[in-house]
Amino acid sequence: MQGSPPEEVHVELECVRLAFGEREIFKDLSCQFARARITVLMGGSGTGKSTVLRMIGGLQRPDSGQVRIAGDDVASCPEAEVQRVRQRLGMLFQEGALLDSMSVLENVGLPLREHRGLGESEIRDAVHERLAAVGLEGVDDLLPGELSGGMLRRVALARAIILDPEIVLCDEPFSGLDPPNVERIEALFSELCRMRGLTLIVTSHHMASSLRMSDQIVLLRQGRALTGTPGSLATSGDPEIADFLGSDGAALARQVSADVAT
């Protein structure tokens, strides 16, 4: 599948090889993610979507190959350097990964408290601003266990963007959410990308929202990456893509492509 080349490459994986014991996840994975665009990583279960995010975040080092973030290779640099690069990244984990023993205010404000040395009132203001950006208010003192699934993801997203990162990695942000919450998160992603110029890399099984919000799609199949746009997915003659999309997915991709064109 050939898509239009990305305007400016922000994140790039080159010749990545990764195996867990006998099981080879990536043989020779190469793909690029454009700056200030939403890229959705799709693929069946076990194809390594979350692992790609973990490699970009420096949580998983590949056996070989490069993972470059604006030119910095996080696959080979020392941990201290990875920590510096991570301050340009935010990550939204599948279950939120909020600290259960801390309130929403403390969770979202934690990166500021650790890295910016701000006063309590400044932290509180910044947290309120980010919570408002994700459509939440009056939740400061709640613990993560007291939040609904949709609220939890939005709080986690507020924490992911609190340090104004360049890139936000989102692991299955729609799983287990009802349609209104899916639409809300989808709208938030679009807003973050268009208004704040963030690069979003999202893994998802959710075909409809993935096709609707993405500028670029990276499809993982058997350790390789196939890159394109929702439109080029629909018209691709590649049997692997057709197999993954199915007839409903292909129709949806054509519909989304037509909507974008009009």
Partner: peptide
């Protein structure tokens, strides 16, 4: 252990903590 299984420790690492 629960923090490991719910990725809370990875969440901290991603915040450079």
């Amino acid at each position: 252990g629960a923090m490991v299984s719910t990725q809370q420790l990875d969440g901290l690492r991603m915040m450079s903590i």
